[in-house]
Design a protein around this nucleic acid. Structure first.
Length: 298
DNA sequence: AGCACA
């Protein structure tokens, strides 16, 4: 799934209905999806078999689409390749991002990745005539890059243009912070706060629950806005918002823990229209919504 | 940084 080589049709799972945009900058385009998320636990599992790609391959392969529709054997070959000894130096830690609209802004790419642990910089490349753009995001190490990759690959970046992100390890690390000569517009976005409190990314403690607890919502967040976002998740049942006192929080119920886990991984840190600053924080709730004592469903 | 409703 996450490691299926990106093809235009492999990401249809994310159905419509998500309407989110950034509030980190003034007057964001309303039609633009901007998804900021924190490290997802599943990324851990990737570390045992990180995909390897020859660091000596050329950037030229990155003319969109980044990868031709692969034959069925591609995935196997892809992983088999990891068995080959590669130079340990210069570990791949740069992501290649395709599927961006031609009018994508460097700031949008930056916002997409800036909250992931280990984010270092991102570089957008647009060719004035093309309707497609691509970008690179540099991370401190490969695990960080893989975590960000699995969290952003397949995401719908732009609802209007039906832009779906294809994120993969780049063929080689970005060599320099400087623009290369063939660049058109090029912007290098450093993280706003590179050494963020690491505890901000610590996993939350509650045991998995089909209901999610949603915090860090903006004061104007509505239940409908949350429905718009969460209803795109498989197994979604309902949202219950609480904004009587202080900061609003919400509870989102799913049919099972697989669904809530999928949602927590997909929507962690997403910035809503109503968000101020950081995106929403998702945790498993402490108890299931509407669960009566005699009801033994989990 | 906050976990209610039945």
């Amino acid at each position: 799934m996450q490691f299926s080589p990106p093809t235009p049709n492999s990401v249809g799972r994310t159905s419509g209905g998500i309407l989110q945009t950034a509030s980190a900058f003034p007057s964001p385009p309303r039609h633009r999806l901007l998804l900021l998320r924190r490290r997802r636990p599943r990324a851990r599992a990737l570390l045992s078999s990180p995909p390897r790609i020859s660091p000596y391959a050329s950037y030229r392969h990155h003319a969109y689409p980044p990868h031709p529709p692969p034959p069925p054997a591609y995935v196997g070959a892809y992983y088999d390749h990891a068995a080959e000894p590669l130079p340990p130096r210069d570990e791949l830690r740069t992501l290649f991002i395709a599927g961006l609209p031609g009018d994508a802004k460097a700031r949008e790419v930056y916002n997409l990745f800036r909250d992931f642990p280990g984010y270092v910089s991102s570089h957008l490349r647009t060719s004035g005539k093309s309707s497609q753009a691509y970008a690179f995001a540099v991370f401190a190490d490969q695990p960080s890059a893989l975590a960000a990759m699995s969290a952003t690959n397949g995401r719908i970046f732009d609802l209007e243009n039906n832009c779906t992100l294809h994120v993969d390890l780049a063929k080689s690390n970005s060599r320099s912070k400087r623009s290369r000569t063939d660049d058109v517009p090029y912007t290098n976005f450093e993280p706003a706060a590179f050494s963020k409190d690491p505890s901000a990314f610590a996993p939350q403690n509650n045991p998995p629950c089909p209901t999610l607890f949603v915090a860090n919502l903006g004061p104007t967040c509505s239940e409908q806005e949350l429905i718009d976002v969460f209803s795109s998740c498989a197994g979604f049942i309902k949202v219950k918002m609480q904004n009587k006192f202080g900061a609003p929080v919400a509870f989102v119920d799913f049919k099972d823990m697989d669904s809530s886990t999928e949602a927590i991984n997909r929507l962690q840190g997403v910035i809503l229209y109503s968000s101020t600053g950081e995106g929403m924080r998702l945790e498993y709730a402490k108890s299931r919504m509407g669960l009566r004592k005699q009801d033994k469903r989990q």
